[in-house]
Write a protein that binds this DNA or RNA. Structure first.
Lengths: 247, 247
DNA sequence: AAGTGGTCTAGACCACCCG
DNA sequence: GGGTGGTCTAGACCACTTG
């Protein structure tokens, strides 16, 4: 009776705001352009700053915006496609790609990785840190875990830590016959160390790519790659066989 | 002098809170168990509710928690692995999988899809909606776009909208010779209609899987699948060639 | 009707970047 | 030092589910 509740469901303010801003980005802003600051935008739309931020967070999640503390909010370029799977299986670091070995050490793998490797937590394991850049920007960081037992008989020179040692571990790995591999992609949030490498704040949304490498009848290595979810589109392409895709 | 600022950088409260809660989930809670409500948790940890929610949001993003309005917050089961890529290329709907055709219509594709198809926005295009379930829960919804011109000469019976029409479009597609395909994965937020199908709120984080199908020298179809990012781990497996993975 | 998570507010302070 | 985004608070009301 008194209830004039004919409107189905009131759209949340931040959701409507996101739509309005998204349209504005398409029509009125150029890539790289800087937006008015949050306090002014909130005032302009007549909402609290927290509400505006909820809309901005969504747009950043979708790769439309880029926010940097102390600087401002800018219009993000379209996501870059980064190739994750080649047509053929290969050990990491064999082909010329845009990965850069950074460092290597011996450490105990996290429990989840130990499970994939089928090793105990106490088994000594080589770790190799690599980072990947695209168009000059860091897009991913990776930790590769190789149980020492998988490299039995292959010598890792006792060099000082650093890229040289990382390359040495990779070279040893390449001597094994790769029998197959396996990938999984899931959403995660950046750990503190990964965030620093990716130039993001801890907790930033990332795409976790877990790769298992099989050799000699066992899981010989596991790689966990952390891609910036805001700027990356992961491509799995045997791709275009006929050269269709222009532009 | 007076500055006793020896601590490097104060960890945000919500970040520390997330760690504490995460450990508690591992040690003190069982899957499916219901947590104390947000007001009580906030009081217990001596923080504002908004701060607690920031921690819970992260844990939900990582698939550790599940929150439902009017019900409560429960401990989420581990993410389910859903196979996205088979060893061989195939049209959608050819193999027996867990996709269910839902409906079909003729509609103009969104601009981004039209670009991938290489068609104008005005070209009539068949759309097929499918949904995918795993363990009885909806995990993904998909929209398949097939330009009418790609199916030239193949008849689509003029049936009423519904699963039958969807299957008819798929059958027509299967008559084309598949020459290749292409995939990309990126982070997105659920549109209102997708969110409803996935039993989530609009804006929920999702993994967008875009597949291009090539036939007869052109892009014959584009599929955009929307996977729940909180509950899904996408697997790309030629997988385990030797049957290693037990458990 | 009671209890839950979801939205929103108006304010404060902090960490960071730059000129 | 001034401006930016990031964190945090203490409240309020709403939408939804369940007994």
């Amino acid at each position: 009776m008194g209830t004039t509740q004919l409107e189905t469901a009131p759209e949340p303010k931040y959701w409507h705001l996101k739509t309005v801003l998204s349209d504005a980005l398409d029509s009125e802003f150029a890539v790289g352009e800087i937006l008015p600051n949050e306090r002014e935008l909130a005032a302009r739309f007549g909402v609290a700053r927290a509400t505006l931020r909820q809309a901005l967070e969504q747009l950043e999640l979708e790769g439309r915006l880029q926010r940097r503390r102390g600087v401002g909010t800018t219009v993000a370029p379209p996501r870059v496609g980064v190739a994750v799977a080649d047509a053929e299986h290969a050990w990491p670091g064999t082909t010329e790609d845009d990965w850069q070995p950074v460092d290597s050490a011996e450490a105990a793998p996290p429990a989840a990785v130990a499970l994939l490797l089928g090793t105990g937590r106490d088994e000594t394991t080589h770790t190799v840190r690599r980072t990947r850049s695209s168009h000059g920007r860091p897009v991913a960081t990776e930790l590769l875990y190789v149980p020492a037992s998988a490299l039995a008989g292959l010598d890792i020179p006792e060099t000082a830590p650093g890229p040289a040692r990382a390359r040495a571990v990779l070279r040893a790995l390449h001597r094994l016959p790769l029998e197959g591999q396996d990938r999984a992609v899931e959403l995660g949030s950046a750990r503190a160390d990964d965030a620093k490498q990716l130039d993001r704040l801890p907790g930033a949304p990332v795409l976790l790519v877990t790769t298992r490498y099989f050799a000699e009848g066992r899981t010989a290595a596991v790689a966990v790659a952390t891609y910036r979810a805001d700027t990356c589109r992961l491509t799995f392409g045997d791709g275009d066989p006929v050269g269709l895709l222009a532009s």
